[in-house]
């Protein structure tokens, strides 16, 4: 039974060997060339299945994987019964929110301590179960890396997810996540990541920081002036 049509994948809830499982199938995208499309779907399926594994080993709860079918870009994994963090946060008391967010920060810290970046941290990609556990899903954009930039991006994405979906409580949520994160990775490593987040956010993503070539002697025609 189709339970969700995400932007990337279709999720089916199925009975498989007498358990309830989720089948996550990455469907071909018509807008991309088949060569690009196949490569992306295969890569992400591999990454996701590996990282779900690594994360679990790092002490971060994730669904157990039962089967991976690369030909079909299909992962069969444990069905997690619960609600998305997106639904839980606004409905929680400030105390519970604070507790959850600190826990999330600690988990993100554990991922980073174990050289994993998630790559798509949002409040839809964390499930809160009926037994009060937090489970991380959707590692398809993740990486095994120690790159500081990517750690910064990870937290920056989390912050943006709070801002765009829970603008009223965004600041408090993110501060609590940071508190947990600092606790998990330690003051100094955390400081480096925090500086990176600042840098990412300050970065002139606008006109001011265009990359240029070395011998830049462009003809100054009218056209370029008007749009400069």
């Amino acid at each position: 039974m189709l339970i969700k049509k995400g932007a990337e994948a279709c999720l089916f809830l199925e009975d498989w060997q007498s358990r309830k499982v989720i089948m996550k199938r990455r469907l071909p995208k018509k807008y991309r060339l088949p060569e690009i499309d196949e490569k992306i779907r295969t890569n992400r399926t591999i990454r996701e299945s590996q990282l779900l594994h690594y994360a679990k080993e790092a002490g971060v709860p994730t669904p157990t994987i039962f089967m991976v079918d690369l030909a079909d870009s299909n992962i069969i994994m444990e069905f997690i019964e619960g609600e998305q963090l997106k639904q839980v946060l606004p409905a929680s008391t400030p105390e519970k929110r604070r507790h959850l967010n600190r826990r999330i920060g600690e988990f993100i810290g554990s991922l980073h301590n174990n050289e994993i970046v998630h790559g798509d941290l949002t409040t839809s990609n964390i499930i809160f179960t009926s037994r009060n556990k937090l489970i991380f899903i959707d590692f398809g954009l993740g990486e095994k890396t120690t790159d500081l930039e990517l750690r910064g991006v990870d937290l920056h994405l989390m912050k943006r997810a709070f801002q765009s979906t829970h603008s009223r409580i965004a600041e408090e949520c993110f501060n609590d996540v940071l508190e947990g994160y600092i606790k998990a990775v330690g003051d100094n490593p955390a400081k480096n990541v925090l500086e990176k987040i600042d840098e990412i956010e300050r970065r002139g993503r606008y006109v001011s920081e265009r990359r240029k070539t070395k011998n830049d002697k462009e003809v100054l025609n009218n056209n370029s002036f008007i749009h400069a």
Binding site: R160, S164, I200, R205, E209, R210, R211, T213, E218, N221
Partner: peptide, 28 residues
């Protein structure tokens, strides 16, 4: 709201840098 954006350089800038490196010349 900004849902997504570039984390480094813009697409147009990327194309322009590539074109210049390739020795192309733009005209009005």
């Amino acid at each position: 709201r900004i849902f997504g954006e570039t984390l480094d350089i813009a697409i147009g800038n990327s194309i322009d840098v590539f074109a210049r490196e390739a020795g192309l010349h733009q005209q009005k």
